[in-house]
Design a protein around this nucleic acid. Structure first.
Length: 643
RNA sequence: GCUGCAGUAGCUCAGCUGGUAGAGCGCAUCCUUGGUAAGGAUGAGGUCACCGGUUCAAAUCCGGUCUGUAGCUCCA
């Protein structure tokens, strides 16, 4: 007999050789039906794999990330099986699960495959599901693996096998299809009840542009048909919320070929929105002891040679600007930090001056590959809500905590209810690509981990994701339809203080090196606004929206009164506009609803007579009449609830 | 940067296999002066992204450029 420990801590006795599926059956029929894979001693494996020693076992379902990824990974095999039957002789690359679904990279040879073939492929996949063909693992020697795939001319698989060590190679058979695969997989295809091919895209073999380009088939699958339908609705919703579309419709920003690609132009309404965000953050930062600075948009090349950025990114940057007479070289600034280091150096610093927190909404310019540009989320000119905190090593943790508080305040005010954090540490197996001493790295990494613990922040640790100059903490938010976006960041930097020779005089009268912390709660104003647009679908919170109200005069006769009312409301710190078109009231309401004005204020003979407004809330309808003062109070109250 | 796809009025798009351009919305003017999601009439707007080629003839076919887009690679 062996002891099996379940996640709740309970220990159960089983015969040696028990399978996870047996264990699931022992718990409940329902669980046995829904279980997809099992995590045995932290290793995910198939439900039919016998357990021969004392183990901890977690049964994985669709609700577990690992259950889901197993489901999708098996779906990738299902896709491959279907494709092989439809297109004999195609060559397979890799087929992993991804965040939303899975893909398979395929060399289709002479076959022409397009999205018009999707229905046919989906149909074939569902036929294979019906067949209930078992999927079985088998371990093979390297020689055998090479022979199997070599005979079939599967050049990509052969290359993969060549990189593997003998004794670690496994195959998975499902009917006529055999794949090189680490696994694990479902027992058979039958839990897959719905599949949908999403799109086709080119993808270089092993991500290398000098190697052949394969066709990547993206798809997603679900255990219930209904979940697929919901997913497709979500995709539609995402399309509707696309910030590029809403930005155009609402007149927030634009691009111009003449100005240049990747260079966003902020229109009056977008500028209003962005400035309001900046003011909001500035006020919080003031409370937290930040000092605002401003620095030029270009800087001497030597500044970036000293900072190390020239070495690291110079080749991938805009070319230097040169002066006509002297030939001096300047760079469009890609970073604000070197400028801020100069501010630090402007005066001798004492330990009593630290932490010094310098903040700047600094516009930076980076040459991004043209294929990378995307709306406001990836641009060549953007404004960071940047700040650099210069502090003593013993202050790092406290400063981290303070920045985390600022980020919390912001996320709350913008109703990003769900956020998570990622701690990026260096790759312990390859420490040479980082600058700075081992000791400093260890200290900084520890400070971040401890700060997260103290704030009770759930943070995922990722090794090898750190920047070359220091570890960092990134914040991810989930938007209203469940998509994850990376926003704010806090990064420790032991490198720049070293390179710029920054110092302070300690209480011991000796010179010491400060630590620098880069932080940007929004990240970039452009990207943040894009995420905010998609999160809210253009229905911004009242405190932020460019127009809080629109006055709709019932007829042209009341335009003068509407103008007076607008001025009156503006005196009470509200902002809005008037629809002065010669249209009927129903039409004005419809247009204002579609334009997402939060409040519509209807003024006709009745309201003017009694000095009131008919208030209508976007999406909610008529709220009845009220005095302008009461309307202002209503808005004031709603704003104070989030701020 | 690489590969695929696309570019027609301010916006969304139609225009089959070549015969020199259309709708809806928006905009302007006029009529209408209205009561909680589209009142009516009239009108203006396009070098069909740009450059070149094929052709009697190109929005349409071919090549190149630019821009957008889906991915790949990259991201201080």
């Amino acid at each position: 007999m062996i002891n099996i420990t379940l996640p709740d801590g309970s220990v159960h006795q089983y015969e040696s050789g028990v399978t996870p599926l047996d264990i699931a059956k022992g718990i409940s029929e329902g669980l046995a039906r829904n279980v997809l894979a099992a995590k045995v001693n932290d290793k995910v494996m198939e439900l039919y794999r016998p357990i021969n020693a004392d183990s901890t076992v977690q049964l994985l379902t669709w609700n577990d990330e690992e259950g889901k990824s197993t489901f999708w990974h098996t779906s990738a095999h299902l896709l491959a099986t279907a494709l092989q039957e439809l297109y004999p002789g195609i060559k397979f690359g890799i087929g992993p699960s991804i965040e939303n679904g899975f893909y398979y990279d395929i060399d289709f040879g002479d076959y022409q495959v397009s999205s018009e073939d999707f229905a046919k492929i989906e149909k074939k996949m569902m036929e294979l599901v019906q067949a209930k063909t078992p999927i079985r693992r088998r371990e093979v020697s390297k020689a055998e693996a090479l022979k199997t795939f070599g005979d079939r001319g599967e050049v990509y698989k052969v290359e993969l096998i060549n990189d593997l060590e003998d004794g670690t190679i496994s195959f998975y058979d499902s009917g006529s299809f055999t794949d090189l695969c680490r696994g694990p997989h479902l027992v058979d295809f039958s839990p897959i009840k719905a599949v949908k091919l999403i799109n086709l895209a080119g993808a270089y073999w092993r991500g290398d542009e000098h190697r052949p380009q394969l066709t990547r088939v993206y798809a997603i699958s679900f255990p219930k048909k209904k979940e697929l339908d919901e997913y497709l609705v979500m995709l539609e919703e995402a399309k509707k919320r696309d910030h590029r579309k809403i930005g155009k419709e609402m007149g927030l920003f634009m691009f111009s070929d003449m100005v240049g690609k990747g260079l966003p132009i902020w229109l009056p309404k977008g500028t209003d929105l962005r400035l309001r965000l900046q003011d909001f953050l500035s006020k919080i930062q003031k409370r937290y002891g930040y000092k605002q600075v401003m620095t030029p948009h270009i800087g001497g090349k030597q500044l970036y040679v000293t900072s190390g950025h020239w070495d690291h990114y110079g080749a991938d940057s805009f070319r230097p600007i040169t002066t006509p007479e002297e030939g001096e070289e300047y760079l469009l600034k890609p970073m604000n930090c070197p400028h801020h280091c100069m501010i630090y150096k402007n005066e001798p610093m004492s330990y009593k001056d630290l932490p010094l927190r310098l903040a700047e909404f600094g516009t930076v310019y980076r040459y991004e590959q043209s294929g990378e540009l995307h709306g406001l989320t990836r641009v060549r000119s953007f404004t960071q809500d940047d700040a650099h905190i210069f502090c003593r090593p013993d202050q790092v943790k406290d400063e981290f905590i303070k920045v985390m508080e600022i980020i919390e305040i912001i996320f709350k005010a913008l109703s990003f209810e769900n956020f998570e954090a990622q701690i990026s540490l260096r790759d312990p197996n390859n420490t040479t690509k980082y600058v700075g001493t081992d000791e400093n790295w260890a200290k900084a990494e520890q400070a971040i981990v401890e700060a997260c613990q103290e704030k009770g922040l759930k943070a995922k640790v990722e090794y090898g994701e750190a920047a070359f100059y220091g570890p960092k903490l990134d914040f991810m938010v989930k938007d209203a339809i469940g998509r994850r976006w990376q926003l704010g960041t806090i990064q420790v930097d032991y490198n720049l203080p070293e390179r710029f020779g920054l110092e302070y005089i300690g209480s011991d009268g000796m010179k010491h090196r400060p630590v620098m912390i880069h932080r940007a709660p929004f990240g970039s104003m452009e990207r943040f606004c894009a995420v905010l647009i998609e999160h809210t679908g253009g229905k911004f919170p009242l405190w932020l929206t460019p127009d809080q109200f629109i006055i709709l005069p019932v007829s042209e006769k009341y335009v003068e009164e509407a103008k007076a009312m607008k001025a009156h409301l503006e005196d009470m710190n509200l902002r809005g506009s008037i629809d002065m078109r010669d249209e009927k009231i129903g039409r004005k309401i419809r247009d204002a609803e579609l334009a997402k004005y939060p409040f519509m204020l209807i003024m006709g003979e009745k309201e003017i007579g009694e000095g009131t407004l008919s208030v209508r809330r976007q999406g909610a309808g008529d709220l009845g009449t009220m005095k302008p003062e009461d309307f202002a109070a209503l808005i004031g109250k709603e704003i104070s609830e989030v701020m």
